Simulated scan of single mutants.
Amino acid sequence: MKLGVFTVLFAQQPLEQALDYIKAKGLDAVEIGTGGYPGNAHCDPNELLNDDSKLNAFKKAIESRGLFISALSCHANPLHPQKALAGPDQELIRQTILLAEKLEVSVVNTFSGCPGDSDNAKYPNWPVSPWPNDYQDLLKWQWEEKVIPYWTETGKFASEHNVKIGLELHGGFSVHTPATLLRLREAAGEAIGANLDPSHMWWQGIDPVQAVHILGRAGAIHHFHAKDTTIDPINVSRYGLTDMQSYTQMLDRAWQFRTVGYGHDLKTWADIISALRLVGYDYVVSIEHEDGLMSINEGFSKAVDNLKQVLINDPVGEMWWV
């Protein structure tokens, strides 16, 4: 396995300065944002697709430092009910796929998106209860009319360009659990897989090790994020896991994101890494920092130090004792 980082942490720095820092930390890979929620501070697909000199300079900046790109990431909502919002997000995903092909990057990460409750809706609608039955009717309509058709077409487009789609299983979007990812993959094809982030499993009450087994046995893990979560046992009893308070309300929230090792111990992270190896995932573990109690530098540095202790680097050898 290789250790990487989602470079949006360093969006305020020029690309080459950020790459020097990342390399000095001993990392192997970078995951780079191309727009949407992560922004495109280091990588504008439209610019790079239309200017070969800029594209070559971009590649050289990364390769000359002995790094490689694990994924291009354009987390957005391509199923937003407002066409003025969904249209640009859909175009961003298409452009990112085309750029990934040019750069020989195998994965594009994004969100599945979430539709509204009708063609006339203004906002996304995320049903999470089977009753009253209106929610079941809504869920059926969303998947049959919006989710499956869009991702079937986009998955086919990605396959034609030798790219896989890593959907982050994130609350608020149609694909947010192993089951919803596998449902979409069955309908839309094997180009669709997960950008699996344990932090979003923990706050939904899902064991990340079991999520790795469920998705890994299906060959459905395309990329992996390293981020932690802590759940406050008192606040969760008041607000539940679907706590709607701002992430800034850290003292009162039911749960919050933490850097690796500050929500769960290294034995838990070792179990996750071992499960990834067990199901055949030997690609990149990409650090994502969203810890409100630590600076970017400290949170990133501690994640690097902790993951280096549990990451399995060497290829599996022959079982000499068998």
Rank of each mutant, 00 (worst) to 15 (best):
V209A: 09
V236H: 08
I231M: 07
D197R: 12
L196T: 06
D243Q: 05
G171V: 02
D232M: 02
A187V: 11
E190C: 12
Q245G: 14
L215V: 02
I206Y: 11
H222S: 09
P208I: 07
L182C: 05
H225K: 12
I234H: 08
L169E: 07
A226E: 10
A194H: 02
L182T: 02
A226C: 15
A194T: 06
M201L: 03
G216K: 04
A179L: 11
P198T: 13
L181Q: 09
L182H: 05
N235A: 14
N195A: 15
Q210C: 00
G193D: 03
T180Y: 08
G193H: 04
V175I: 12
L181P: 01
A188S: 13
G219E: 13
A187H: 14
T229P: 00
G205L: 01
D232G: 02
T230W: 03
M244G: 15
D207V: 00
W203G: 02
H176N: 03
A218T: 07
R217Q: 14
H225V: 11
T242Y: 15
I234K: 12
Q204P: 06
H176I: 00
P233V: 08
S237C: 15
V212Q: 07
A211E: 01
I231Y: 05
I221D: 01
G219M: 12
H170M: 13
I165Y: 04
H200Q: 10
G189C: 05
P233I: 09
S199V: 02
N235L: 04
L169S: 01
R185P: 10
V236P: 10
E190G: 07
D197T: 12
S199F: 01
W202C: 04
G172Q: 04
S199A: 14
A194K: 09
N195V: 14
S199H: 05
Q210D: 06
A194C: 07
H176Y: 08
H225L: 11
M244L: 15
D228S: 05
D243N: 06
D197L: 11
G205K: 00
G189Q: 05
W202Y: 13
Q245T: 13
W203S: 13
V212R: 09
I192W: 03
V236Q: 11
E186P: 01
L169A: 08
V236S: 11
G172F: 05
A188I: 03
G219F: 10
W203F: 15
D197K: 11
G171T: 04
L167K: 10
R217S: 13
W203Y: 15
L167I: 14
L167H: 10
P208D: 03
I192D: 04
G240N: 02
A211W: 00
A218D: 13
A179E: 15
R238A: 08
A218N: 14
H213F: 08
K164N: 13
A226I: 08
K227W: 04
P178K: 09
